[in-house]
Nucleic acid binder design. Structure first.
Length: 801
RNA sequence: GCGCGGGUGGCGAAAUUGGUAGACGCACUACCUUGAGGUGGUAGCGCCCUUACGGGCGUGGAAGUUCGAGUCUUCUCUCGCGCACCA
């Protein structure tokens, strides 16, 4: 590799980093009268393997923005911290036989070093760490507030269990039936757990999405995840029984087409119907079979649905009092809707396949022509076979039929309540106490933080009990209520808990009395720009919104949404086009790149590579262009004189560039911001001389992107103060327009030439064009049917012949 | 299956929002510079025909709207992502 010639980036960058540290220019001030700008990265999970070159992409973009905003007169909050509880840290610790608390400290140190060489302008005084008791005290506090409000409950229902991670998981932690973290196939297992009623917030989480300035894809993902559907709850009485089956349907209009009713195999109703069920043995063995299957097996067997008829049980259709058979089948989910469906095989694909398989009747109630022997019809139309509703339009009759059947209109969500307990060591202890006399009693707030006991052995047990359960000294406690003997809750919180509110802690990191001072919260909230990866679309970003809304409801925060604007960085792939990962051996370490070309070059390159939100392969070879750019800025200094007159076009270009760079930074269009600076540089290089003022402004434009070299050249020009506390340059509106125009000449839409003029009058322009020889050539012997003149821009002659 | 986002030179990509497609950068070619080099500079660089002048074609494909389409409309192919038996 070639050695840099113009400047020694290693020495220079180190020098400026320590200068900034000493002068403290990046410290955020409180009580400022300036407008605020809160620019935030999703804080990293400090894993053992350190940063690769893809991680800083988002950090660079926010750093550029933060620097730009600071120069533009904003009071900027741009902090960094660590999301350090959870499985990865614990697994790393187990593997390397060091305690997670030590491993986290080590990893944080390494991350911090790696970040520090990139020249970010974080205010490290506000650093937070979710594993710090002074931090998780407030995570626990928030949980207790939820508990108080009845937003938590203890459940023994079967949940997702990862046999390899040995813990229960939330719905959000699954990826196609597999553990999102380790890829193991998840089982259903009944274990005692704490659950948060996030579904109580489903409607608000959904409604408020529209107003957010977020990428469309993330908004759609969340909408999809929350999965609202409007429908009806209808009740089917059971013949000769006081039990009844309540079903949820979005198609009450098809009720006359019901030919059977299906319960989920897990339904508690099945047990209650036992006396009536004549084939109980068969039913029971089916239920057992299904329960043994994992979610993957249940869905992978594909669309092949299985079920068993509950012999002797009949449900009564509320619409026509018809008796229909009752089945249990694996295609009905226990935890959605009511866990039971009315089956209308004529107008539902799944019911149709099931009916075909088990020879159940298919009754068409919409149009007569739609349903065939091969296919159901799921659209709308005119009702038939539907008693007094015959002839009506199916889509406009939903609520009328619901009423007719004695049902009610309801809204259902796909979102499930948040399984909040983990049977693992490395997480926030859930601050509850179990007392034989008083039941579940919260740990008094003044006793928070409830510290995670520091122990030697913390391997997961796999029994459904947390390893904390074995620490008798910690578990055995007194009931805060009756002072009798009691036991602590031993489950810990999921990894996502700590990241639900950290952005609030940055506002007020040292507050011991409350989660956040309302005055500070009011000033800094909400986060103006939040940047991170798309992988958080339906996990962190839903949990955090929920958590925030809860805090809003109890008056802790002043806004109902935490993140006004969200931006996702695209992945940087390995040079081989695969995802950068140790597994593929294609990891590029930023430390090596900094050594080779310097942080400034890395920053420019990552911003210049392509659109911010797009995935692009890394190429160390391509970086040379960014390095050359910086070198040429350095060398341009040789042309700087006190006073010099720039060409008119160069001057105009200069003002356009100031405008564009500022706009592009805010729109995360960094690649075009960099390219416009390159264009400007090309023009300045073509000048005889460049005046000092112009050169200084160029440095100001560069400062957010290349903070080290900008400050170096700035100081070489004789400035005593850092360039980073200077004002962003202003552009002159009047200089944006050129005084001559290049007018495109087209004939029949084809480009035939250019007219350069400073007189935009139509008559003049047309005349001047007609005088051009190369144009006359094309018009000769032809009739001009029409001429279009777009002022200052284009002329098009439509000709015939 | 449903939802979202893409397809532009050898490569990463731009395109004043309907007005000269390929800016900027990488790679490549030629020449100059340097004692030497993955240095610096100048010029060239979408494809095809032409020594040249010049011309034709060209933004996944087909059609449409328009004086004019990468941009708008319809259909279609294809790639990526998210959700997925959600009744």
């Amino acid at each position: 590799m070639k050695k840099p010639i113009s400047y020694d980036h290693l020495k220079l960058e180190k020098k400026w980093q320590s200068t900034w540290k000493k002068s403290g220019i990046y410290k955020t001030t409180e009580g400022s009268k300036k407008p605020k700008s809160y620019i935030l990265d999703m804080f990293p999970y400090p894993s053992g393997s350190g940063l690769h070159v893809g991680h800083p992409k988002g950090y660079i973009a926010t750093d550029v923005l933060a620097r730009f905003k600071r120069m533009s007169g904003f009071n900027v909050l741009h902090p960094m911290g660590w999301d350090a509880f959870g499985l990865p840290a614990e697994e790393f610790a187990l593997k390397n036989k060091i305690h997670p608390s030590i491993a986290v400290k080590k990893n944080v140190k390494r991350y911090k070093e790696q970040l520090s060489v990139l020249g970010f302008c974080y205010d490290w005084d506000r650093e937070v760490n979710t594993t710090d008791p002074e931090y998780y005290k407030w995570t626990q506090w928030a949980f207790l507030q939820m508990h108080k409000k009845g937003l938590t409950f203890e459940s023994h229902e079967p949940i997702n269990w990862c046999p390899s991670c040995k813990t229960g998981l939330a719905n959000e932690d699954l990826d196609n039936g597999k553990c999102e973290r380790c890829g193991s196939i998840v089982e259903k297992k009944p274990i005692r757990q704490w659950v948060i009623r996030i579904t109580d917030y489903a409607d608000r989480l959904l409604k408020d999405i529209d107003a957010l300035n977020w990428p469309n894809s993330i908004k759609e993902s969340q909408k999809n995840w929350i999965g609202r559907s409007e429908g009806s709850e209808l009740t089917f009485k059971i013949k000769d029984s006081k039990e009844e089956i309540s079903v949820f349907t979005t198609r009450p209009d098809t009720i006359f087409g019901v030919t059977y009713v299906v319960l989920a195999p897990e339904s508690h109703l099945v047990e209650k119907l036992k006396p009536q069920i004549k084939n109980w043995d068969k039913v029971q063995s089916f239920i057992k079979d299904v329960s043994k299957k994992t979610q993957i097996e249940r869905t992978a067997e594909g669309k092949e649905k299985t079920g068993v008829h509950l012999n002797g049980v009949f449900a009564i259709n509320p619409a026509n009092n018809e008796e229909v058979p009752v089945w249990i089948a694996d295609y009905v989910l226990a935890d959605y809707g009511t866990g039971a469906v009315m089956a209308v095989p004529a107008h539902d694909e799944r019911d149709f396949m099931f009916a075909k398989k088990y020879n159940l009747p298919i009754v068409s109630v919409i149009g007569s022509e739609h349903v065939s022997d091969e296919k159901s019809y799921t659209g709308g139309g005119t009702l038939i076979n539907s008693g007094k509703f015959n002839g009506k339009d199916s889509e406009s009759i939903l609520s009328e039929i619901t009423k007719f059947c004695g049902g009610k209109t309801v809204v259902r969500y796909k979102l499930r309540d948040w399984v909040f307990s983990r049977q693992r060591y490395w997480g926030e202890p859930i601050p509850l106490v179990h007392c034989a006399k008083c039941g579940v009693v919260p740990v008094p707030e003044k006793e928070l933080p409830l510290k995670l006991p520091n122990v030697k052995f913390y391997e997961p047990t796999g029994t459904g009990e947390s390893p904390l359960a074995a620490i008798t000294k910690w578990v055995n406690t007194k009931c805060p209520n009756c002072k009798g003997n009691a036991k602590r809750e031993t489950n810990t919180m999921p990894q996502w808990a700590g990241s639900c509110w950290y952005y609030l802690r940055y506002m007020d990191p040292k507050n011991k009395k409350m989660l956040v001072d309302p005055k500070k919260e009011k000033y800094w909230s909400p986060v103006d720009v939040y940047v991170g990866g798309t992988e958080h679309a339906t996990r962190h970003l839903i949990y955090a919104r929920f958590w925030h809304k809860f805090l809003y409801d109890i008056g802790v925060v002043s806004q109902s949404e935490p993140f006004t604007q969200l931006r996702n960085q695209g992945l940087i792939m390995g040079p081989d086009g695969q995802k950068m990962s140790k597994r593929f051996g294609n990891v590029v370490n930023p430390d090596d790149i900094v050594k080779l070309y310097g942080a400034d070059t890395l920053r420019v390159y990552e911003m210049f590579m392509g659109p911010f939100d797009q995935a692009i392969s890394w190429s160390t070879d391509n970086m040379i262009g960014s390095r050359r750019f910086i070198e040429r800025v350095w060398r341009l200094k040789n042309k700087v004189v006190k006073k010099a007159e720039l060409k008119k076009e160069t001057e105009s270009l200069f003002h356009k560039t100031i405008k564009k760079v500022g706009e592009d930074i805010q729109e995360f269009s960094h690649n075009t911001a960099v390219s416009s600076m390159m264009i400007l540089l090309n023009a300045l290089e073509a000048e005889e001389n460049v005046d000092k003022d112009t050169y200084e402004k160029l440095l100001l434009l560069l400062a957010p992107f290349t903070p080290h070299i900008a400050d170096e050249l700035w100081s070489q020009l004789g400035h005593k103060k850092s360039i980073h506390i200077e004002k962003w340059p202003l552009f002159d509106e009047a200089k944006l327009v050129n005084d001559s125009f290049k007018i495109t000449i087209q004939i029949n839409g084809k480009f035939r030439g250019v007219l350069e003029t400073n007189n935009p009058e139509e008559a003049f322009v047309l005349k001047a064009i007609m005088e051009k020889v190369e144009i006359q050539k094309h018009l000769e012997g032809k009739e001009i049917v029409k001429q279009i003149y777009v002022k200052n821009r284009l002329v098009n002659f439509v000709v015939k012949g």
